[in-house]
Design a protein around this nucleic acid. Structure first.
Lengths: 167, 167
DNA sequence: TCTCCTTAGACAAGTTACTTTACTCATGGA
DNA sequence: TCCATGAGTAAAGTAACTTGTCTAAGGAGA
């Protein structure tokens, strides 16, 4: 990396991660951590789902109850959200029932299998974070997390947009 | 977020960014910062290029000299890399010349316009980082960058893979 | 020299993950 | 009764690739 600066050497393959752009560091850290997480989820028997399906579960926990609501929570069209719900219903992670408010609305709810997925995802994520604690100076990621929170609040400058890493 | 834990409240829309998963923090910070960077590049007259084209320039600086080499540096097929080079050649950012090693090889090189893009990208990136320095406790992102570097080295556990955020 | 193998590059078709466009219902208010 | 609105669905379009297949150009052996 080192965008737009003189290249140190032509074969700087083992990059000095500390002197690289912040944007690159954030992206690479995210990519690496997500990959580990996904690998472990696959190994735990959830290879049929992508991260975006996990975000659907999240949006349901956060209060979304129809395909359209899921779509706007995730920042995708209702058609795309409807497709996610189709996938999840077919695989038994959610079920569609009648909606109390009537209309064409259909209530989307997590099944037991869906709740179990959430439990596993949460456990694996905390496990992964735990394994990383030891690498920080004071044995905790608290400082890093606080810095990231600051950065995010400054960059967003208001409510957070939907999280959409184009998975 | 708070995957797999009891949801604090049903309408926790203004999320407490500090208590959220590290993976989510990394992804959100990256998404927000990349978006700002891309917006500024667009405003600077580079709306015709995507971030992946910037990575092509990077790979050329790092020593890649043919489509195939660019492809393996970026972790995509040679066909995809060839397409990137087509785009860039058509827009005047790179040129293809004869390769000294012969064969079907074609040497890919940055034009002046390509170098200018790199200059601008670097300047905007440093400008963006500069603007963020003030939000950190000691007026510098050094601590954050050091923590991220640690995290990346631990997660990669060896040479870094290609950076491929699926843009 | 001839054959075999490897590699670069190009072309075309296929795939994925969506969006866009265009509807069909169901309800509810004027 | 007649829209107007919003949910849901279906089908086509699109972007950014991969896969499959081919040709061209060496280089290594026999």
């Amino acid at each position: 990396m080192n965008v737009g600066q003189a290249a140190g050497s032509d074969d700087a393959q083992p990059v000095d991660v500390g002197s690289v752009e912040l944007l690159f560091q954030l992206g690479m850290a995210f990519q690496l951590m997500l990959e580990k997480f996904v690998r472990r989820m696959d190994a735990a028997g959830y290879a049929d789902l992508r991260p975006v399906h996990g975000l659907v579960f999240q949006s349901l926990l956060a209060g979304a109850s129809t395909s359209s609501e899921i779509g706007s929570a995730l920042g995708v069209t209702k058609q795309a959200a409807g497709q996610f719900v189709n996938d999840l219903e077919e695989a038994g992670y959610v079920c569609r029932t009648e909606h109390p408010d009537g209309g064409r609305r259909r209530l989307v709810r997590l099944t037991l299998k869906g709740h179990q997925h959430l439990q596993t995802a949460g456990a694996l994520l905390r496990e992964l974070e735990q394994e990383l604690e030891s690498i920080f100076a004071d044995g905790s990621s608290d400082r890093l997390r606080a810095d990231l929170a600051q950065l995010i609040m400054r960059l967003a400058d208001g409510p957070l947009p939907p999280f959409r890493p184009n998975w």
